[in-house]
Design a protein around this nucleic acid. Structure first.
Lengths: 119, 119
DNA sequence: GATTGACCTGGAGTGCGCTCCAGGTGGGAT
DNA sequence: ATCCCACCTGGAGCGCACTCCAGGTCAATC
């Protein structure tokens, strides 16, 4: 049963130590274990959960929604249908983001093409 | 030579009137014309430029960078190569955004699949 | 035994991009 | 004439997601 120091978790997840503390404070991360000196020791499970948060965050999920998701996870297996619904809704939003980005990218390509024609 | 009232521009561009004033204030939009009563009357050109801003903004370009672009546009035709460079750099960033989003989306799909298997 | 460095806490501060507000003007409908 | 409504200005305020700070603990190294 391996544990991770803050520095290791920063390295693995890409979250800063301040962000890790912040996430714990607001309840996105359940109270992390401590050693005798009161320093955080993250479990494998914590690190896995942070991977999920990383993914949701990077796809633009607001913290308030991640918090709802965290609460569902904590509430037990009977919330699995709700979690699926939440992730499916988010998935739709990610798809929309991608589509919109691709659409706007065409405009940028046009613009570049126009400027090239002006040279 | 048609002009647009603030309400019309809000309608067409999707920017709020406060945002339009803000963009003018920070120089993202050149000083907009006024009627006798001091009210804004946007030109066709203003509206076109706002369309460009809309696109850059929606693809995540920070205001500071849009400002640099605006300055290049104002500086005249000799800045066209710089504008191309700026837009190409942005285009790369948009591509990266899309790729990253698509990558993360796979994780979300996996997660949904996993939850489905738990039902 | 002094220093260094990784970590701790609570709380204040930051940067971005707006958004809102108070107080006022002018033009058109009732 | 009076009302409303769209608009004006300068400046304050806000929400989000961190990020930084002061002051402190502990363990290990020189």
């Amino acid at each position: 049963m391996s544990v991770y120091t803050p520095a290791e978790v920063v390295e693995e997840t890409g979250f800063s130590i301040d962000t890790l503390r912040y996430y714990e404070k607001i309840g996105l991360l359940e109270r992390v274990g401590r050693n005798a000196a009161g320093q955080r020791r993250f479990s494998q499970e914590d690190v896995g959960w942070l991977g999920t948060l990383r993914c949701l965050r990077d796809t633009g999920m607001p913290i308030a929604k991640m918090l709802r998701f965290a609460e569902l996870v904590r509430a037990g297996d009977h919330t699995i249908p709700d979690r699926i619904r939440l992730l499916e809704e988010h998935d739709r939003q990610v798809r929309e983001q991608i589509d919109k980005l691709a659409e706007r990218q065409k405009y940028i390509h046009n613009k570049i093409g126009y400027y090239r024609s002006q040279l």
